[in-house]
Amino acid sequence: MDEELITEWFDRYADDIYRFLAYYTSSPDVEDMVQDVFIKAINNFDKFKGNSSPKTWLISIARNLAIDEARKRKRQDWRKLIDTYQTENEESPEDVYQVTESKAQLHEAIHELKPNYRDVIILRGIEELTNAEAADILNWTENKVRVTFYRALKALKTQVGRVNYE
């Protein structure tokens, strides 16, 4: 793989990969993993088929890395991730606190979901990828993405309710 091509991909998609890994691992400290994604892409470039976009291919590599990483270490403190969100639109410190707390609860609930649901919520709900893009990354049909996203939203709503009451 040419260094020009991989650096072009890096410039274009590094931040997308960074954000995906941050949601997936619940930690903002994922720069090293982003680099690993591109190293893996160089090593496995012969497996890249032009019929999927480089972005979805790189995200699928990132997802596999994140799964391996999650096996190795316990989950990070997701509140650290929540602190990285911009909150300049809120008027008072109380508002900021409330919004941060509610995001933290939602984030915790997402990570309580089973892996399939978590994947589809991050890709479709947060990253706002299309059904086709999510299907490409997860190696599912678009219909399965649609159905699982519907079920995942339902499960997440129940989970958020449960977290709120605990």
């Binding site: 590094a14 931040d15 991730l81 969100y85």
Partner: peptide
Amino acid sequence: ELKELKMNKSISPEKKDEMRLNIAKFAK
């Protein structure tokens, strides 16, 4: 609410330069 979880944070430019260099070296 889910969309609001989308964060704006990105990798710092200095870190990006360092990573880009490492990746290019590895590709070479």
